[in-house]
Design a protein around this nucleic acid. Structure first.
Lengths: 148, 148
DNA sequence: CTCTTGAAGTTAGGTTCCCTAACTGTTAGG
DNA sequence: CCTAACAGTTAGGGAACCTAACTTCAAGAG
């Protein structure tokens, strides 16, 4: 048990705690928001670049296939996505945004981004810069783990 | 629509996305972990400093009172916490860790912190520093919102 | 061509976590 | 004393996750 691994453990501890708090904060800002849940919005946002298979959606969200199926079915029922078939492999289901889905993604993302932006705007410039610098680090960790 | 607010919105967008990815990463690292869920561990960890009221627990976790009651009841059934009464106010329930609860908190936190630390250890020193610098910012945002 | 193996998605059944509404019991102020 | 507010629980329900088991289809081996 050397001091180096102690430092890493301590950083891990504060990281976990800060993450929990950050999740709390964003949930707090969603109060009164009924159009889409956070999970639904994540799924739809991911489709903005084009259609995706059910299995791709599940992997990107970090959930199992049945969970993706369930969410897709709910969103399909509300008219936000549709299921297309892949002409090259009839087992595959390609999920795409409908026009209504596109509108909803844009609308809800804008509303939530504004709520977060309002909080970020009140931070000192140094804190804002610290936040900005940490984002690509998180993304790089995510990219590495997602591939495995 | 000036360029300044565009920048804030863009930062908010990437912040939300990074947060989602971070949640994915930590969930990924908890795979195979069955002793305690993330929510349960958050609740128990909070009790390490001493007993707390149900309402305090709920506020700190960012959930409603019935949710706290439910989780406390589950953890009580597993022998990790106990309910004591407050001699000065008989409406109040003070929740405390049992010895088993203390052991479980220490064990599971260590295991999860090690999993995160292993990932952090592989980062370049600059990235580690960026992560470290962002943590107090998240905490300050949380503290401000929690008070409201 | 057939047979087997595995991949893609869905269905079935269950748990956890969260909510609002409504209730019981207790405190405290007018 | 009586009413208002507070602490916690109960009841009921929805969303998001899981594993196990199933169907359908693809693709390689013989």
């Amino acid at each position: 048990m050397n001091s180096e691994s102690d430092a890493a453990l301590e950083l891990a501890r504060t990281f976990r705690e800060a993450l929990r708090q950050a999740v709390y904060v964003t949930r707090r800002l969603d109060v009164g928001e009924t159009e889409l849940t956070g999970s639904q919005l994540s799924l739809l946002t991911q489709l903005a670049d084009g259609g995706a298979r059910v299995s791709d959606i599940a992997r990107n969200l970090g959930v199992r296939a049945p969970t993706a199926t369930e969410q897709i079915t709910r969103l399909e029922g509300r008219g936000y996505v549709r299921r297309d078939s892949d002409p090259e492999d009839s087992r595959v289901v390609v999920v795409r945004l409908t026009d209504d889905g596109w509108d909803a993604v844009a609308r809800v993302n804008l509303r939530r981004n504004r709520a977060i932006a309002a909080v970020i705007d009140e931070l000192p410039a140094r804190d804002r810069a610290a936040l900005e610098a940490a984002i690509p680090v998180l993304t790089s960790i995510y990219d590495r783990l997602r591939g495995e």
